[in-house]
Nucleic acid binder design. Structure first.
Lengths: 397, 397
DNA sequence: AACGTATCCGCAAACGTTACCGATACTTTT
DNA sequence: AAAAGTATCGGTAACGTTTGCGGATACGTT
């Protein structure tokens, strides 16, 4: 009853064990092993998922070949206007959507550039994203954004995902925890363009887009000194970040230039977080000989300090001058206004995007300047202006 | 000199035109057409791009087949521990990174869900993103974010890109311009899960995550009335957005409940933009019988109004009460503080993400509640509090 | 021996597209 | 009319994975 699929013999068939719960047979004649496939299962269609129309569908419906359809869709040569129109019409009719995945696979490029930012909580990184996004869209690229949430492991996993998804280039701003850069070196080895911005590091030979943190910091502290503040504290960021080191350097340089002595117990470096800002701020304000001004590494820390000063009844700017960094939107509105250093966020995004595009589209090794340093701007508001006649910004009384 | 590749004949070869600028020949004997491929070009290697190690490379180096490597890498069955280890070791040695593109193609799913937001400028959408991101990452999904920049064409192009990239699901908040929803219906037809949040619309049968705009709006206006304001204006949003309509409805309901007459020239619906806010705000404040309070559709408009009032010397909250919507971070700091309606942004993101995951991972058609309405919260600050004894929030004097 | 079972591994077909190359029919030149 | 050129289309091998199905041992059991 059972005949060998090979030699059609019937007599020499014998059982030969089970494979995946199916009886196996062997033909003693031709030594052919086989199982009987039961075609009774109701042929579960091509795919249970709804079938997306493909180029092949169009080809079948139009009566041409896949290659012709592909040519028609891409406006390539070697095709007559009639067939092209027929194909396009059929494509519209069948509601064809190209499968970018297949395209990417064969071209091994995705037209997507990735961006990893440490956080989203204030408008700083979003503004950078906006700047970069605009340029990239214009150049025909998509932007995939991931946020590392200031966590090194997440940053690593993000870069891995970016690699697996074969992005054409990466824009990244590092976590405050990041001390190891192997996950970035992979990109070098793979030849995938990389641009660091804002939170950069040495040790990676990629172009960097930063602002002149040193100068900005210097300006901030100089401004405080010129307004008569003397004993200026610095609430800094984590020292593994270049920005923190540069801002510290600017602080020290300004203090030195004007002959102010730096009291080292008033220079604190810590993580970026509201909680830390409160803790360090409390420490500074509770010193028995407390500083008469504080230069904070970012606006949110500065604002925390302002709020604490308010609670303690310390008058700003008379008893305490405060300067932040970055010009968050809320800084314009808080109390007398927070003096701060504006960063050209949009420009950071734009130049980063521009560079990554250049790196991608240059066939050969492109030598880019290693670093672009953008200028910062001092925004003077009430939190540091002892001379009240200078008031120009709008404020509530 | 030229011999036929087929029959090796020499005498019967003749030219037969050009193909892509290369001389073509035909053998009269065997009627075989051919061009001479010149192998003198320096064999440009497999790919000019650096070769990424693939599963095939591992297979060759280990001496097993592709399938075995694949099984080893994924921890599947049908493989001995020794070979598995050997493969894994070789994979590590060759620094193998899986090609997600190929994987996605064969599985026709990307483990990526897309998110389209209208803008990034304030912290509202970023906070939603944070909430969604957290859940998605935990569930093993990636998040691709695009911003439509409040432009309908960009929104359409974004959805197209998402479709082409075969995202597994889409979270979208509509543009203020969006009046046509065909680009969303495509997702329905394709069977790709879709969740609308915040800026939703009817006409699309997808679950929606919104806040109780009506209630929030009602609370805001009621609060104004209870603080003694009488002639309350409303600066609303574009009426094609449900949020705008709901907030308008809440405004009207509160006014009606307390028997206040609505002066229709003090109800303005417009686009979300700082410029528009200034124009409409100026109009309201310049009315010869100007309102004594303004309920604005969002905080940035409210802040614009506060600033204009300041310029004009109108005292807040004594001469003018102001309430916004959304509780942007700067609202806590501006002047006397802006009373506003807080939206649970994080929760919006989380429930949206949760729903999209359920929709994706449910095999069958899943019936989800059509809508989730999250609660809002009234945050009372100085801009609307005529009874000064109630002050509790910290403020600068 | 003859048969049954379990384990491990390879083959090859998908997934949807692109691009190289060959093939045909037709037009133009010599 | 042969030869050469042009325009248009099809065949097919990639791209890198996954996976169903079988083949081939090795070992245990009648």
């Amino acid at each position: 009853m059972i005949s060998c699929p090979k030699c059609s013999e019937v007599g020499s068939i014998m059982k030969a064990g089970y494979v995946r719960n199916k009886q196996r047979y062997v033909c003693k004649d031709c030594n052919y092993f086989f199982t009987l496939s039961n075609p009774d299962q109701t042929t579960p269609r091509k795919n249970s998922r709804r079938h997306q129309t493909t180029i092949i569908d169009i080809a079948r419906s139009t009566g041409v070949s896949n290659s012709t359809v592909s040519r028609a869709l891409h406006g390539h040569a070697d095709i007559s206007p009639e067939t092209r129109n027929a194909v396009l019409e059929m494509a519209a009719q069948l509601d064809y959507q190209p499968n970018q995945l297949a395209y990417n696979l064969v071209k091994s490029r995705t037209n997507t550039i990735g961006m990893i930012v440490p956080e989203f909580t204030n408008s700083f990184f979003p503004n950078i994203i906006i700047g970069a996004h605009e340029l990239l869209i214009e150049a025909g690229y998509n932007l995939t954004i991931m946020q590392s949430n200031e966590s090194y492991p997440i940053e690593v996993s993000n870069t891995k995902a970016m690699l697996a998804n074969r992005i054409d280039g990466l824009l990244i701003s590092l976590t405050q925890e990041t001390n190891n850069y192997d996950h970035l070196k992979v990109f070098e080895k793979r030849g995938i363009p990389l641009v660091l911005f804002n939170r950069v590091c040495d040790y990676v030979s990629a172009p960097k887009v930063v602002v002149n943190d040193f100068e900005g910091s210097f300006l901030a502290v100089e401004h405080l000194i010129l307004n008569g503040y003397d004993r200026i504290a610095h609430l800094g960021g984590p020292l593994n970040l270049l920005v923190s080191r540069e801002r510290l350097r600017g602080y020290r340089a300004a203090m030195e230039k004007y002959g102010k002595t730096i009291e080292e117990n008033m220079v604190i470096q810590g993580m970026f977080s509201q909680q830390k800002a409160r803790i360090y701020g409390k420490y500074l304000l509770d010193l028995e000989n407390r500083p008469d001004a504080i230069f904070a590494v970012n606006d949110s820390s500065a604002i925390e300090i302002m709020l604490m000063a308010l609670e303690k009844g310390i008058r700003i700017p008379d008893e305490l001058g405060v300067v932040g960094f970055s010009d968050n939107p809320e800084s314009a509105y808080i109390g007398p206004g927070l003096t701060t250093i504006r960063q050209p966020t949009n420009e950071i995004g734009k130049t980063s995007a521009q560079w990554i595009l250049q790196l991608i589209e240059s066939e050969e090794e492109l030598i880019l300047p290693n670093e672009k340093v953008l200028k910062t701007e001092l925004i003077v508001r009430g939190s540091s202006r002892r001379n009240r006649s200078l008031i120009i910004n709008s404020e509530f009384g």
